[in-house]
Design a protein around this nucleic acid. Structure first.
Length: 881
RNA sequence: GGGAGCUUAGCUCAGCUGGUUCAGAGCAUCUGCCUUACAAGCAGAGGGUCACUGGUUCGAACCCAGUAGCUCCCA
């Protein structure tokens, strides 16, 4: 082991990661132990590691490593998501660079390229997770589009279709003209955008005047099939039953009446465009209006528009404004703010579009999925998300599951020449069904065409906790029976509905059981200024560079230090720096102890320090356990941090550390101290391991801890159990620490060097036996002689700890005036405090209502304060001031 | 428009059933130290009208109402 002055993570991280892999420490197979299962939220196969993944996977790894160290059979299943839209877009771009157009390829040719791309670039992210130390069972790595998982998707589709929960229909969908596919409501982000509101005149067909309508989308007027006014609008009664001409193309459309129209918005006249607006579509259905679709799939205008054919919708908007203006149809343009939908995947403006799509009914599945959470069978952490979850589940819409893409599971619907369809897993089965359906025995496979669309990616990831254990293919296999339901799911709140809710639905439908017990929702990683980390802002650090700079352990600690459960975290590199410094602190504490050697001939003298640290350790351990039980990871880490840095390094090691012995290679300490310290250190390594796996594993194997068999590794060490806690000792040592701090303070104030010994006199008025702690006090406060007195000495700097008095005789006499002022100030404070306590105790209603314990506390406050005041008075009298 | 949440030290956050010596932590800051493990360190210190206004209570950071600001979700 190197003895460098600082911890150098680079040398050891790869070494130990490989060691763990080679010895199958991450591997899990069912056995008699209790399982602990986590399935990774599968990152996009196209993805690269970002800060959100870092946080998410650090948390999962801490939980998994802890479970492993608690003797559970820990299984963390990794994998990736095929991410239809994102991946297909990447492949299309790759092809573009090679001057190949998707249009010129057959489906099979395209998929060949896509798989090629996936093999080459996909899954980089999983290798990156290894750098972080993720202890996934890599042999279980799954991919949502691999054969078995795709089969599960198809079976699920058929199952739900047979139940009548999947149907086909013409609906207004959210169309992404860039991805050229429908997307679900959940994949549409609404943003407020500054728009223009165009006021356009429509001439009445009979030439008797005109009406003015207001619209943000003038390019769609050619798709209008009516103008609508509110029947109660008195301004327009003269228009009832009339017709108007659409400007520029002069097509005649009726004026219809409906109280849907808001009279005070715009002009009170609404253009009705059923093909390009959801509300207009509903209005059109009600009034039996025709539907004229003037847009192509890519957002350009088609022949139905008659003018501006081939122009993009936004270019057309500008151009038509010019045309309308030129012909005198444009009355005015106003600035207007409104919500516009953007595609989550491509950020293109969503176009409402009528199309034939597949839908999955949600209402029946939502009910039981809601119950799991409301009844507490699934816990959401933090629980504030329960409300959000309920709200969504009670207002759930049917799920648009078809996507006009090739990368994904192709919908198992087969169309017959007459437009009818059958749902079947294979073309053979489809043919059989088709023959039954049509009674036409002459049908052949070539008469059937499979639906070209694929299902939404979430339609495969909602099966993830089941499908990774092959629970569809083989519903009774050993893995699924052992690992399902999983324990904890760690994910981002933004996919609570996309993914978490639907997994619960699928879990209930296909296993009759919730897929997990706890859902830990992490915050969003933001920068110091609270902005979301994003590529375009360039405010996201590269996680791998951070690991390079601060070590994986440092970064893990940094992530957790700033991640309160459920709140967004304002990430800053300085947290990683703190993590690195912590690693270094541990490294150096280790170096200190490694420089020691047990010597039988030295009499043990640190029994008190040892007993104290043992109690302190157990106290912290209890705290850490309770924090973990409540998923307060950040606080569990902080308790650990303080235990190690403050209690172990700053106090314990300083208490027991031998004075420097010159001329020896190793510093000699008594055997008892040596053994205790090593055992403490080993326990500290254990509780640190889930947070800092690499450093702890490295130190674990040092010869200081003795010879270890090959498989005796920190990663599988069993966490210590909470042992006995001597609370009296802990309380006493707190007082002892105060004595030491006060002496140090006097040193500081009087500019006395730490090396110079001081004398200390104690006038003990309480029950505390300071004699017992003499060694600790003299060592840590660097005291020459420590004696006990009954009379206050003259010319000494004094301080009080609880009701005990301490004096440090100084060569330079203390200034009596200064001392007097200090005591007076103290007296004023204590008198005020006593008054407030007395008034409380004198209050009849307090005495009548407060709990007895509280009254007791107040009485003790009173007694203590009175005792202190008495001592103060004596001191003041002695100083004659 | 509907709903949820937040506001405590310069920053990030704890503060559990209203009650433990005038509200805690980490970081940052200030002062002094290169003290034979660690300057990525050590010792010590300072820093708060618990967003605001009112109410309930013997007692409020905590409960209630209102106000302001911020965040998120849904339409």
């Amino acid at each position: 082991m190197s003895t460098s002055k600082t911890y150098l993570p680079k040398d050891i991280e790869d070494k130990w990661y490989s060691y763990w892999l080679e010895h199958d420490f991450f591997k899990s197979v069912p056995d008699e132990r209790e399982p602990y299962t986590v399935v990774i939220p599968p990152p996009n196969v196209t993805g690269v590691l970002h800060m959100g993944h870092m946080l998410n996977n650090t948390i999962q790894d801490v939980l998994v490593r802890r479970a492993r160290m608690k003797g559970k059979n820990a299984c963390w299943v990794p994998g990736t998501d095929h991410a239809s839209i994102a991946t297909e877009a990447k492949v299309v771009n790759m092809l573009k660079e090679r001057r190949i157009s998707k249009k010129d390829l057959t489906r099979d040719e395209f998929l060949k390229y896509a798989w090629e791309w996936k093999e080459k670039y996909g899954g980089i992210i999983l290798d990156q997770l290894k750098k972080l130390g993720a202890s996934c069972d890599w042999e279980r790595t799954r991919f949502t589009m691999e054969e078995g998982l795709s089969e599960a998707v198809i079976d699920t589709f058929i199952h739900l279709y047979k139940k009548g929960w999947i149907y086909r229909g013409i609906r207004m969908v959210n169309w992404d003209p860039q991805g050229k596919t429908a997307v679900s409501d959940e994949e549409v982000n609404r943003k407020e955008v500054n728009q223009k509101l165009y006021y356009i005149r429509y001439n009445l067909a009979d030439g008797s005047g005109y009406v003015t309508i207001a619209t943000t989308r003038p390019e769609t007027i050619m798709a209008d099939t009516a103008v609508c006014i509110n029947p109660n609008d008195e301004r327009y009664t003269h228009l009832h039953g009339k017709k108007v001409l659409i400007p520029l193309i002069n097509r005649e459309v009726p004026i219809i009446l409906d109280d849907y129209v808001t009279m005070d918005f715009g002009t009170g006249c609404l253009k009705v465009t059923p093909a390009h607006d959801l509300n207009d579509y509903q209005l059109g259905q009600k009034h039996h209006l025709p539907v004229i679709d003037i847009l192509n799939d890519d957002g350009t205008l088609n022949e139905n528009a008659q003018i501006l054919v081939g122009e993009d919708r936004f270019a057309a908007r500008k151009k038509i404004a010019v045309l309308l203006e030129a012909d005198g149809y444009l009355e005015k343009i106003e600035e207007y703010k409104s919500q516009v939908g953007f595609s989550e995947r491509t950020d293109a403006v969503i176009e409402p579009k009528l199309s034939m799509q597949w839908f999955c009914k949600m209402d029946e599945m939502a009910k039981p999925a809601l119950d799991y959470v409301l009844k507490g069978e699934i816990k959401l952490i933090p629980d504030k998300f329960v409300n959000t979850y309920r709200h969504w589940m009670e207002n759930v819409h049917d799920w648009t599951i078809s996507r006009q893409l090739w990368w994904g599971q192709q919908i198992p619907a087969w169309y017959l020449p007459d437009g009818e369809y059958v749902i079947a897993k294979t073309v053979e089965e489809a043919l059989k069904l088709a023959k039954e359906k049509t009674q036409n025995l002459g049908l052949t496979a070539t008469d059937l065409t499979q639906d070209p669309d694929v299902v939404d990616t979430w339609f495969s990831s909602w099966l993830w906790p089941i499908s990774v254990f092959d629970g569809f293919k083989d519903p009774n296999n050993a893995d699924i029976n052992y690992y399902y339901p999983t324990n904890d799911l760690v994910t981002a709140p933004e996919i609570l509905f996309f993914w978490v809710a639907r997994m619960i639905m699928a879990g209930h439908e296909f296993r009759g059981e919730a897929p997990f017990k706890n859902v830990y929702l992490t915050g969003i990683v933001r920068d110091k200024l609270g902005r979301k980390m994003s590529k375009s802002l360039g405010n996201s650090p590269d996680p791998l560079e951070l690991i390079e700079k601060y070590g994986a352990d440092g970064v893990r600690v940094g992530m957790l230090l700033c991640s309160p459960a459920g709140n967004d975290l304002m990430f800053d590199e300085s947290y990683c720096e703190q993590g690195r410094n912590f690693a270094n602190k541990i490294w150096n504490a280790f170096k200190l102890v490694k420089g020691w050697e047990a010597d039988e001939s030295i009499a043990p003298k640190n029994a008190i320090a040892i007993e104290w640290f043992e109690s302190r350790f157990n106290q912290s351990l209890a705290e850490i356990e309770s924090n973990f039980a409540q998923f307060r990871l950040s606080e569990a880490l902080m308790s650990t941090y303080k235990l190690v840095w403050d209690d172990f390094c700053a106090w314990y090691l300083e208490m027991v550390k031998p004075a420097y012995q010159q001329g020896v290679e190793k510093q000699r300490v008594d055997t008892e101290t040596f053994k205790a310290t090593i055992s403490f250190f080993e326990n500290i390594l254990k509780i640190l391991h889930p947070f800092m796996p690499f450093l702890t594993e490295e130190l674990w194997h040092d010869e200081l801890f003795g010879e270890r068999p090959e498989l005796d590794c920190c990663i599988v060490a069993q966490l210590p159990e909470v042992g006995k806690i001597n609370t009296r000792l802990l309380a006493d040592v707190e007082l002892v620490k105060q004595v030491i701090a006060n002496v140090r303070n006097i040193r500081n104030a009087k500019q006395i060097a730490p090396k110079e010994k001081l004398n200390l006199s104690a006038k003990v008025n309480s029950e505390v036996s300071y004699k017992y702690y003499e060694l600790i006090i003299t060592k840590l406060a660097n005291i020459g002689t420590f004696n006990f007195i009954v009379e206050k000495p003259a010319g000494a700097a004094g301080f009080m700890v609880s009701t005990d008095e301490f004096y440090v005789p100084l060569e330079l006499n203390t200034d009596p005036v200064e001392e007097c002022a200090r005591l007076q100030k103290e007296k004023v404070y204590l008198t005020g405090f006593l008054n407030s306590v007395n008034s409380k105790l004198g209050n009849e209603r307090f005495m009548a209502n407060a709990k007895p314990e509280i009254i007791e506390v107040e009485l003790k406050k009173k007694a203590d304060t009175e005792a202190k005041l008495k001592i103060l008075e004596e001191s003041l009298a002695a100083l004659a001031c």
